[in-house]
């Protein structure tokens, strides 16, 4: 295998910085699990894409608890998105286990895995918004799809948008939002969804410094609100706000 891909368990950059006392996260109730038990655990994760000779990800282990903001950094192609996809159960890893709230997700039946996927809220680099719909509607969807009524959803969505500084842009159509606003909408959606784990893949990749700071602050507020947040980023301004940073090393991506 070419190169050691990543460091086992990651590097505890700033591990003792800004980490609040652990407490139960919304939606994190897990039966007999200890209050501080990790919500999400990836153990010895590895992945090799079909057609590639070398793995993109090898032997990465990671634990994330409620109220934690964990950064995943590394150069382009180091496997940050692959790691998030594996942790978020979008991609079955070639090696290792993903445990969500105490359940080994890939050893479970598909129905249980679908249930486990409902723990995750995603924030993506290219602002996954419904472009013809307003910011308010974009956030409300996260509640409507959980069986909420529209009126209640709209109220909670407005609160979430207020929390990320978009209180004045509730009625703006997503396609007209600028800078970091679309990303902040997706952060608000993650906040409003109540899902215990937020996975953010390069959420500041295409926005200006001011927007980056706003998104980073919003991610911080997600963690403060009780969620576990994992953010893949190469932006030091975002990494600085993390409780811990897992750094992935150079990879052999692209060698066939």
């Amino acid at each position: 295998m070419t190169g050691a891909l990543g460091r086992r368990g990651g590097r505890g950059v700033g591990a003792d910085r800004g980490r609040p006392a652990a407490g139960p996260a919304p939606g994190a109730e897990g039966g007999a699990r200890a209050p501080d038990a990790p919500l999400l655990v990836g153990t010895h994760l590895g992945h090799t894409y079909r057609g590639l000779a070398s793995p993109v990800l090898a032997d990465i282990s990671l634990e994330v608890r409620a109220r934690e903001l964990v950064g995943v950094t590394g150069p382009s192609g180091s496997g940050k998105s692959t790691l998030l996809s594996a942790l978020g159960l979008l991609l079955p890893p070639s090696a290792g286990r993903v445990v969500v709230r105490g359940e080994d997700a890939w050893a479970s039946r598909s129905a249980a895995r679908r249930l486990a996927r409902e723990c995750f809220a995603w924030i993506l680099q290219n602002s996954a918004c419904l472009e013809a719909r307003t910011a308010l509607e974009n956030v409300a969807v996260a509640l409507l799809c959980q069986g909420e009524r529209r009126n209640a959803s709209v109220v909670q969505a407005a609160d979430a948008l207020e929390a990320v500084g978009l209180g004045e842009r509730l009625g703006a159509v997503a396609a007209t939002l600028s800078g970091g606003e679309p990303q902040r909408v997706t952060v608000a959606r993650a906040l409003a969804s109540g899902r215990p784990v937020v996975l953010a893949d390069e959420p500041t990749g295409q926005i200006d410094p001011a927007g980056t700071d706003a998104v980073a602050a919003a991610l911080r507020s997600c963690a403060t609100a009780g969620r576990a947040v994992v953010v893949a980023t190469h932006d030091p301004r975002v990494a600085r706000r993390c409780d811990r940073v897992v750094e992935l090393d150079t990879v052999a991506l692209g060698r066939r």
């Binding site: 679908r114 809220a121 995603w122 996954a128 419904l130 799809c145 959980q146 969804s193 899902r195």
Partner: peptide
Amino acid sequence: AVYVVTGTR
């Protein structure tokens, strides 16, 4: 895809 990633089945 946005609907799916937002949590819609």
